[in-house]
Design a protein around this nucleic acid. Structure first.
Lengths: 238, 238
DNA sequence: GGTTAATGGTCTGCTTTCGTTCCATTGGGT
DNA sequence: ACCCAATGGAACGAAAGCAGACCATTAACC
């Protein structure tokens, strides 16, 4: 039993800055934080935010551009724009993505469950400002009004919003991380109208509980929602 | 409201590999994962685990050695050994550490609460092996039998153990991270016998609930325990 | 129609980090 | 008494990443 030593001496950095950066931007796109046509922050700004040099960022952008995810336009009012659109769900790709993850799948699902149920609970306990309440309701409405193609991204943004409402940046970041790890899998699940209706109901229940200041219900509703997705996911992998 | 963009484009790396490494090893020592006299893994091994080059690791070890935390011995059966002992608690230092953290303090406390209550809940739901049950009980007994000087480190190890029992490496790592952020503060709190008794009682309650498969009680007991520490901490800062 | 400010594109030199190899030391094993 | 395997110590060139300066382009604005 030297698990604590293993935990303390886990890798200090995931990989090189370049790959990390590509992954980050890619996931921001796939999570729907940046939609088709949106402009990324200017290179100098983005490099600062990501804590890397502009040169390294440009390498990452170059490879994203070559892969067709973004497009750069020069000149004032130019910038780097998202050209990517979500591909159609694909069960084969789902299986491949799951195999890449391997044992990490259950790890990621468990971690997500802890983070997001905890976030819902915490958000429900807080005094939310009118702006914050409106923000959550807007994310809810976006998901309600979304087409099947857009639904996954709106769903992500709804859940990320709950993380933001906790007021804990670490928690919000961890939720984003956990979602990113599962995102390729979740995007590859063929969503049916019935699934979406079900998810929407649960989103409403979660929102209602959070805005109503009911942590227990918010937690339970979030858990049901996430377990439903996890079950659906496992079904496609079986 | 562009919090999601902020979250997606947060820094990809904390600092340079050298500083990160120093911090990691230092925290492993301060968390009690490595006690006085313990040997660190061999340089080649440790560098691999940390995902850095041996050269960079050696830089980190050199600075730790100069600061008096570790000592290197050459030859077979040599190695790098911990020479550090926890200093006496110091309220002035506590205030300084809290100022360094600033607004991050509440963030770290909230994050820790979510992670550790979630971990206790999850651990209580799992079927634990005999080894795992014995491991948790051992950590509990270590804390019970600890002197005032050792208590903080045993306390940390008890809580880290719960993270391990969830079976989710991500969760265990996140708990270790959250604890590390708060560790300097917690170590600076003067622990009284009364505090320790109280904490011990709560540890027993948490352990009992986890081993008894009662997630709700495990969660609630953990929350009480953590909130007590948080309150104590805030009292010293006020 | 020219100006201009913000943007992506490029280059150069520096620092950090890496990967590898070899050396020096040590204490148990034979 | 010797060997030797595992350890820390040290050095070198290559690669990655950084910091800053400068260039080229563009569309809004006057």
């Amino acid at each position: 039993m030297n698990g604590q030593v293993d935990a303390a001496f886990r890798p200090v950095r995931t990989g090189n800055a370049f790959e990390e950066t590509v992954e980050r931007i890619l996931q921001a796109i796939k999570l729907g934080v940046l939609a088709h046509g949106d402009r990324l922050p200017a290179e100098r700004d983005l490099a600062t935010r990501l804590g890397i040099s502009r040169e390294t960022l440009r390498e990452a952008l170059r490879s994203l551009q070559e892969a067709g995810y973004v497009e750069a336009r020069r000149g004032r009012y130019g910038g780097t724009f998202v050209t990517y659109r979500l591909p159609a769900p694909d069960v084969d790709q789902l299986r491949r993505a799951a195999q890449d993850l391997g044992a990490e799948l259950e790890d990621a699902l468990a971690f997500r469950l802890v983070l997001e149920t905890g976030a819902a609970d915490l958000a429900a306990r807080r005094e939310l400002s009118d702006d914050q309440r409106a923000y959550l309701l807007q994310r809810l409405a976006d998901a309600d009004g979304a087409s099947v193609e857009q639904y996954r991204q709106c769903d992500s943004r709804f859940h990320l919003a709950i993380g933001e409402l906790t007021g804990s940046p670490s928690l919000a970041a961890a939720i984003a991380d956990a979602r990113m790890r599962l995102n390729d899998l979740l995007n590859a699940i063929p969503m049916l109208g019935r699934n979406i209706d079900h998810a929407s109901h649960q989103h409403h229940a979660i929102t209602h509980a959070i805005l109503g200041g009911d942590p227990t219900t918010a937690r339970r509703a979030t858990e049901e929602h996430l377990q439903a997705t996890a079950t659906l996911l496992r079904a496609f992998l079986a």
